[in-house]
Design a protein around this nucleic acid. Sequence first.
DNA 1: ATAATCTAAACAAATTTTTGACAATGTCAA
DNA 2: TTGACATTGTCAAAAATTTGTTTAGATTAT
Lengths: 325, 325
Amino acid sequence: MKTEMSKKKLYAIKYAALRADLSTHLVRAWEKRHQAVFPARTESNRRLYSEEDILRLQLLKKAVDAGHSISMVAKLSSGELMRLINSQPPADHGRLSYTTKPDEPTEFFNLALKSVLQLDVKRLEYALTQAAVHLTKPMLISKLIVPLCAKIGELWRRGELKIINEHIATPVIRSVLWNLLRSADVPREAPRIVVATPLNHHHELGALAIALIVRESGWRSLYCGSNLPANEIAAAVKRTKSRAVGLSITFSLNHQQLAEEIHKLRGYLCKDTAILIGGQGAATIIDDVKANGVQLLKDLKSLNSVLDNLLISVSKKETRKKSNP
Amino acid sequence: MKTEMSKKKLYAIKYAALRADLSTHLVRAWEKRHQAVFPARTESNRRLYSEEDILRLQLLKKAVDAGHSISMVAKLSSGELMRLINSQPPADHGRLSYTTKPDEPTEFFNLALKSVLQLDVKRLEYALTQAAVHLTKPMLISKLIVPLCAKIGELWRRGELKIINEHIATPVIRSVLWNLLRSADVPREAPRIVVATPLNHHHELGALAIALIVRESGWRSLYCGSNLPANEIAAAVKRTKSRAVGLSITFSLNHQQLAEEIHKLRGYLCKDTAILIGGQGAATIIDDVKANGVQLLKDLKSLNSVLDNLLISVSKKETRKKSNP
DNA sequence: ATAATCTAAACAAATTTTTGACAATGTCAA
DNA sequence: TTGACATTGTCAAAAATTTGTTTAGATTAT
């Protein structure tokens, strides 16, 4: 280590303590009791602090101010200290304002994206779970999950990311969405909708997001997973007496087959049953399908209004039926 | 040897309570009265909270704020807590008989199967999570999950069950397996294995089971999901310096393509890297592939012995390398 | 000489732990 | 409804530990 004959500037303890806003006594105590820093020494045994040492003291001071005890953080590396402090924004005004801090979705987004790039499943899971705790469901979907998936897709198309990254991220995101979906409780008599992905479409996240949003707005969604042929979708609709079908499409490798599936589905279902198609690939659907009694969802937001309209039209029909038996 | 480099950051109760917006008194009370968390201890008996502990406290706080009593939620897993948050008190479950010993896997099996047949997601989830609580992991896999999947497949072939039933069950089972997988903790320096499903194979459950068993026996599994091309699998192996690849195969629609994929994968990987193939469809692999340095897993039990042999052969090689530089 | 630094020890304040108690609230049977 | 009983959050006390500060005496830098 001593190979580096440093021309680095070294400072006395008074200056180091001043920079870190600590007393010299405390700096010495941290060193003696916790080996918090390892300053060099002069021949006469005086401590000499490098710029790195000072940074470390500043980080320790910040961590302690954030509520940590010195014994817990003294042995962390400077990098870990940085992360510790950055991940928990410092409560400058009073330490109890911690609970009232507005959680920035972007913060979760950045952490999550970094974790995906580094194949760090554990950290990705941590970021998403934290976000799920601190954000509302709509915020979580619209500000974190959707942008994250979009960003991953974009990076993949630009070649800055391998398929493996997306494959690592998918189960984690899916798990979070599934947990959220299962946590939403809706009354038994709520209108039902079957959510799935058409034959040969395997990306589930969009469908899960649809199921979640739909459930959030009072519908009872039956999530049927991916790659479901039209006749099975129709069977599920019939079996559960659902009023609508939600499909998610990402990439349409085979436009023709997709069109056929939707056409078949439309044929199986009664005319009242709405077919909603969302997802990134929804816009690429050929016109033939569009005309076929299918509603395209521009985004998840539009889903809500479509659902509302559906409910209205359904209740109108029921009223008509009632008043004219 | 448990050479776990416990690099985990640990925090004092003050900080943990601050993060969860609880008083230190209450945190201690929850632990004493309900075993809500299990913090580590210092030599001087002070509590040490990990990031997971803190997350758990946050979830518990949220659940209590949502109206649940601490005694009801204290023993739930983090996944279950997430589900509980924002949700109303659980509705009527088809209950398991608490009088008989709940260690009977068949009881869980029957309830689960009935739930699948009736498309009752909620009850299926209940049965599986209860089973996950009361059974050991190997028992859960071998006596419940595997038989359940097998039974579903059999009923489907006999036409007594529609694809939709299987599609309803899959996300639930997958979620349970995923939660179990994520809850297992393995040392950082454990040997690694990449688990996935080959190109055009979309059934994840087998792969998840493999990942779970593998992790159970001390390996560090990177779960990469389904439908992964050979070059991406190889990239993951290289990136994580894994010593083995685990693949799960259910139905082989296209034997030729599967053989090609495995052949390509064998080519990408160095000779030392083992390729393990399991799943219901593993037996149908054509001989050409078998000869190609691929290990077939007759059942999940055989997986363990294969893994052990792998470790032995690896350590032998390392010894040889050392003694003969 | 004066100010700064060093080590070591002591001190006071803060924090933590355990035990136990208390009131408010919920539960459940009579 | 009432009353017994359990649950829950809060608090207190006492002992132990941690932490920040202070003191004391010796040494060093300017």
